[in-house]
């Protein structure tokens, strides 16, 4: 019985590729990445404020029109700025945000191990 998921998985996969289901998941994934403009810290997925509903309709329509996620996000950023995306894009302005922690971590670890080796 445990392996009955295999044919089901295959079927869903095929279905996924052609049906509206992908569009729905795509839509929800996008909703979770777009900030609700008038609420505090919520995504439009979580909010049912007027503007959030409008944006959801807009995103659904754009998906129907065949736009990619990138294009849709690009459109929103063009209108509202990076602020509307829950996750800041990687660009010059955000290099420090994205890369500073990992660089600082690496430097620290190198210092710890090198000092220890020198003393050992």
């Amino acid at each position: 019985m445990k392996f009955s998921f295999v044919p089901i998985l295959v079927c869903t996969y095929i279905l996924l590729c052609f049906s509206a289901l992908t569009e729905e998941t795509r839509a929800i994934n996008l909703f979770k990445e777009v900030r609700c403009l008038v609420c505090q810290g919520q995504t439009i997925h979580e909010s049912n404020a007027e503007i959030a509903e409008d944006l959801k309709t807009l995103i659904r329509e754009k998906i129907d029109e065949g736009e990619t996620d990138k294009e849709i996000k690009g459109f929103l950023v063009e209108k509202y700025g990076d602020w509307i995306l829950m996750t800041p894009p990687v660009k010059e302005l955000t290099y420090v945000l994205w890369f500073a922690p990992i660089i600082i971590m690496a430097i620290g670890l190198i210092v710890i191990f090198r000092r220890k080796i020198a003393k050992a």
């Binding site: 403009l37 007027e50 944006l55």
Partner: peptide, 13 residues
């Protein structure tokens, strides 16, 4: 009526 032009203008509310 749809609020679409407002979104194009980047309107919050």
């Amino acid at each position: 009526t749809s609020g679409r032009s407002a979104i194009n203008l980047g309107v919050y509310g």
